[in-house]
Simulated assay, not measured.
Amino acid sequence: MRVLIADDDAVARRLLELTLTKWGYQVVPVAGGLEALQALEAPDAPPLAILDWEMPGIAGVEVCRRSRKLAEGRYTYMILLTARDRKQDIVEGLQAGADDYICKPFDNYELQARVRSASRIVELQSELIASRDALEVLATHDSLTGQWNRRAIFDILSREISRSKRQKAPVAVILADVDRFKHINDSYGHLAGDRVLADIAVRMATGLRTYDSIGRFGGEEFMVVAPECDKAAAHCMAERMRSAIEENPVRLGESDLKVTVSLGVASGGAALPDVQNILLRAADAALYRAKQKGRNRVEVDDQDAVAESDANYGGMVFNPPKTKA
């Protein structure tokens, strides 16, 4: 474990460094409070810090206080090391954000015990953060395809629309539906259907820009959110995805299964009223036309797309469309 030590006394700092190194810790030594604060703000900041109270520039107690205010999503266990032993000093240090307090001159056995205790807490914190991150992935990603789930892709669309309003740029929505997916499930089994969905999701994601997003919209349907993408560019993007899926059959055991998708494209300026529902309904109407015209094709919303979707959905908030097959 990496440990930051900050002490302006070169002899005391060296002694502490040698002691901690002997116990198996990786030591990051600095000579002042400003250096300590910079080290704690770094992306690879040590998870444990031992700070001398009295230092030039910024005192150790102030380093604690500022570090706690600046911390985002991570926690550094901080121990204050000082000759001050009055109760009010201890209280001040703990209220500033220190987790523990050791008086100088320190006793090696006490220091070792407190650092070990701090290490256990840091390790527990790391486990909790890993568990939290894993839960966040489960809450926002589709377990089958690994892409964003319905709620997450809707949140992304809302954020991109808000951003596009500030930048006065278009946002594109692409809805893709696997053709004759029910037939695939009925003929090859649901495990094969799962394989098809997972494979298609990968191929679609491969053709996106780094700032585009794809999510499983429901069943065999996917949604792509493409910021700063006009209708023509979105059409090209959808056509690349369609072609990549058509030209590369899905491997099922010893055989290859040719799979195709139909896609509906809509793009518009975020200044439109209720733009999210307008885009979704227009993309869905375009997807419906792609199915009607023979499947395995891309259709782009036209001037009648919104009116058509209004007729289908009665102007209500968009919900998952019925299976299009």
Rank of each mutant, 00 (worst) to 15 (best):
residue 283 A to V: 10
residue 229 C to Q: 07
residue 73 G to C: 09
residue 220 E to I: 11
residue 310 D to F: 12
residue 48 L to R: 03
residue 311 A to S: 13
residue 274 D to K: 03
residue 63 V to T: 08
residue 90 I to M: 02
residue 69 K to R: 14
residue 274 D to R: 12
residue 164 S to K: 07
residue 114 R to K: 12
residue 272 L to E: 13
residue 285 A to Q: 07
residue 126 S to K: 10
residue 117 S to Q: 10
residue 212 D to N: 12
residue 110 E to C: 09
residue 32 G to W: 08
residue 104 K to M: 03
residue 21 T to C: 13
residue 2 R to M: 06
residue 159 R to K: 15
residue 145 T to E: 02
residue 321 P to D: 07
residue 183 H to P: 04
residue 58 I to E: 06
residue 118 A to H: 01
residue 220 E to M: 08
residue 81 L to C: 10
residue 91 V to A: 07
residue 258 K to H: 14
residue 69 K to Q: 15
residue 297 R to E: 06
residue 18 L to P: 03
residue 280 L to C: 08
residue 27 V to S: 01
residue 200 I to M: 00
residue 177 D to A: 00
residue 137 V to Q: 12
residue 82 T to I: 06
residue 305 A to P: 04
residue 55 M to E: 05
residue 132 R to H: 06
residue 139 A to M: 06
residue 314 G to Q: 09
residue 16 L to M: 13
residue 184 I to E: 06
residue 63 V to E: 09
residue 157 L to I: 00
residue 207 G to P: 11
residue 222 F to R: 05
residue 103 C to P: 00
residue 301 D to N: 14
residue 87 K to T: 14
residue 103 C to V: 11
residue 238 A to T: 10
residue 116 R to Y: 01
residue 283 A to N: 11
residue 244 A to G: 08
residue 187 S to E: 12
residue 321 P to F: 04
residue 232 A to H: 14
residue 114 R to L: 06
residue 256 D to Q: 14
residue 214 I to Q: 00
residue 156 I to Y: 09
residue 55 M to F: 02
residue 65 R to Y: 11
residue 132 R to G: 01
residue 150 R to W: 09
residue 68 R to P: 01
residue 47 P to V: 04
residue 280 L to R: 07
residue 284 D to G: 08
residue 146 G to V: 01
residue 258 K to E: 14
residue 296 N to P: 00
residue 189 G to W: 01
residue 23 W to S: 11
residue 211 Y to F: 14
residue 192 A to H: 11
residue 216 R to C: 05
residue 32 G to H: 11
residue 261 V to D: 05
residue 100 D to R: 02
residue 192 A to N: 07
residue 56 P to H: 07
residue 163 R to H: 06
residue 288 Y to T: 00
residue 92 E to C: 04
residue 216 R to Y: 11
residue 294 G to C: 05
residue 241 M to P: 02
residue 274 D to N: 10
residue 106 F to M: 09
residue 299 E to I: 07
residue 233 A to H: 12
residue 260 T to S: 15
residue 234 A to K: 02
residue 98 A to N: 06
residue 176 A to K: 03
residue 118 A to W: 00
residue 79 I to F: 08
residue 122 V to P: 08
residue 315 G to K: 00
residue 146 G to W: 00
residue 5 I to R: 05
residue 319 N to S: 15
residue 162 S to Q: 15
residue 229 C to N: 01
residue 21 T to P: 03
residue 130 A to D: 06
residue 143 S to R: 12
residue 190 H to A: 07
residue 119 S to H: 13
residue 106 F to V: 07
residue 133 D to E: 13
residue 169 A to F: 00
residue 145 T to P: 01
residue 315 G to S: 04
residue 165 K to P: 02
residue 110 E to L: 10
residue 109 Y to H: 13
residue 316 M to K: 15
residue 3 V to N: 10
residue 204 M to E: 03
residue 68 R to M: 05
residue 209 R to T: 06
residue 238 A to S: 08
residue 81 L to Y: 13
residue 88 Q to K: 13
residue 27 V to E: 00
residue 134 A to V: 05
residue 89 D to W: 09
residue 113 A to G: 06
residue 180 R to T: 08
residue 152 A to N: 14
residue 264 G to V: 02
residue 63 V to N: 00
residue 14 R to L: 15
residue 108 N to K: 14
residue 15 L to I: 10
residue 232 A to V: 08
residue 183 H to M: 15
residue 236 C to S: 14
residue 113 A to V: 03
